[in-house]
């Protein structure tokens, strides 16, 4: 059980990271081409990554409880995942706060770039901070978790890709509806 929980976290978090890379690339391409398809892709990838990260974090907390007896032991990996989750939550909230589509897409793309650059710095800072604190040692990954996790990661990757495509189509449909509504209003 413990191994399964850890491998769920250990495979979910890297796939969330891959989603963040997709979101970054899509955001940069949007800023260069102003093609709203890439904005929708950035949004879909960020939402997918956020969902995977939330699931991975939940598994990580359960693993921490099962392995060390505490829900939250300021584990470097879990803390980094939480900080990344907060940064991407800010991205999603900003999108909700802006009405105008072009402004929303541009601002969101800028935040996406800044958020992506922040993640490695946060990971390093948290690792250094963790090393200085007198906290109980971190539970290491269980032996043989790699095979379990890599199969898991493949499944997660496929699920993530499917989710991204669904969200992308939904976003495009919404955009088309929005365009029609605007056209109707100007008539």
């Amino acid at each position: 059980m413990r191994d399964a929980l850890f491998s769920f976290f250990g495979s979910g978090a890297p796939v969330a990271m891959a989603a963040a890379v997709v979101a970054l690339v899509a955001s940069v391409v949007f800023l260069r081409t102003r093609n709203f398809l890439y904005d929708a892709l950035a949004l879909a990838a960020t939402k997918t990554g956020f969902a995977l990260l939330a699931a991975a974090l939940a598994a990580g907390v359960l693993w921490s409880r099962a392995a060390g007896g505490v829900w939250w032991a300021w584990d470097t990996r879990l803390t980094t995942a939480l900080v990344c989750g907060l940064v991407y939550a800010a991205y999603l909230m900003l999108r909700r706060a802006i009405e105008e589509p072009t402004e929303r897409a541009t601002s969101a793309a800028v935040v996406s770039v800044l958020a992506f650059l922040d993640a490695p710095l946060a990971a390093i800072a948290i690792a250094w901070w963790r090393a200085r604190r007198t906290l109980p040692p971190e539970g290491g990954p269980p032996p043989g978790w790699g095979t379990l996790a890599s199969g898991n990661a493949l499944a997660m990757l496929l699920a993530g890709a499917a989710l991204t495509v669904i969200l992308l189509r939904r976003e495009e449909r919404r955009r088309a509806q929005d365009a029609e509504r605007r056209a109707a209003l100007t008539l």
């Binding site: 900080v83 940064v87 800010a90 909230m93 706060a97 601002s107 958020a115």
Partner: peptide
């Protein structure tokens, strides 16, 4: 600069700033 035109400006600025500033 990013939040200047948003209605929820006063709320959004700290929401964006603090997580990025963590390191």
């Amino acid at each position: 600069a990013l939040t200047v035109n948003i209605k929820l400006r006063e709320v959004m600025l700290p929401m964006l700033t603090y997580p990025i500033l963590i390191p």
